[in-house]
Amino acid sequence: MENTIEKTRLERFLDSDVWHSFKNSPVAIGSFLVTLLIILSALFAPYIAPHDPFDLAVIDILDSNLPPAWELDGDPRFLLGTDDQGRDILSTIMYGARISLFVGFASVIFSMIVGITAGLVSGYMGGRVDAFIMRIADIQLSFPAILIALLIDGIARGIVPKEAHEEVAVYVLIFAIGISGWVQYARTVRGSTLVEKGKEYVQAARVIGIRPGTILHRHILPNVMGPVMVIATIHLAIAIITEATLSFLGVGVPPTTPSLGTLIRIGNEYLFSGEWWITIFPGAALVILVLAVNLLGDWLRDALNPKLR
């Protein structure tokens, strides 16, 4: 008899307002599918990409700067044309998205871990610890994320020997973008923690004798995750943009393993000579990805906070 009342996680999810709102939002479904498509094609790029743009044996310099297949000089082998080194644009986009998404997700996770921990501790402990963490956050907020990422990258260049630079570049980038984003999480989590801390279920746990660590982890954390997920989605879009921007500025990932931003940077040099496809297609891929993620984030925020609609 109890089983009829007890709902499984799936059943609860299917009955939730979030799922219901998702089902009825074509924008949410569409952007979810687009995001999924891009993630999958990036993930399986080595298997599904028409060419391997990094296999020097396959690349032919004679194929360089070919326009898209439907243009007059196009070559049906290269749907979206080729770049200056004869690499297939479609394939470089798929491989580039791999790097962009990897850096994006990794830096979001990094930010989340740092930010949530700082926010929970700051909100729950209060007093000096809180003042200290929030002061750091305030100072960091004085600088846009892009500047902090640039600085960290610049410092890393000063510390890491030149030979090793290319190898660590991606990790430096993840650290730089990740560290520049933690404040958002910390502030939100701190705010929610202050609210949750004042609620009576936390006081009840304290009266029972539950220790602060357990209270934070078991009681407060699950209750502050809603807004965190919204920020994380939007932050993913920002992280991808930041990565692209840094790579575009020439301080991101090295050209040997290009991300979408690197591809746009490379193509930008050919913009004036009329080879627009080298820039525009990676740019379009980037915008579509970021827009899809942003639409998802926007929908999620409304779905979790029905008042705002």
């Binding site: 609620k199 009576e200 006081q203 009840a204 746990a205 009266v207 029972i208 004798g209 009681h219 699950p222």
Partner: peptide, 25 residues
């Protein structure tokens, strides 16, 4: 804390707001 636990066990509290006194998760 350990010693305090002995007294916490003997002493419990019921709160005002039924909507915030239980962890919804």
């Amino acid at each position: 804390e350990k010693e305090m636990d002995y007294y916490r066990r003997q002493m419990q509290m019921i709160f005002q707001d039924p909507f915030s006194s239980l962890n919804g998760r």
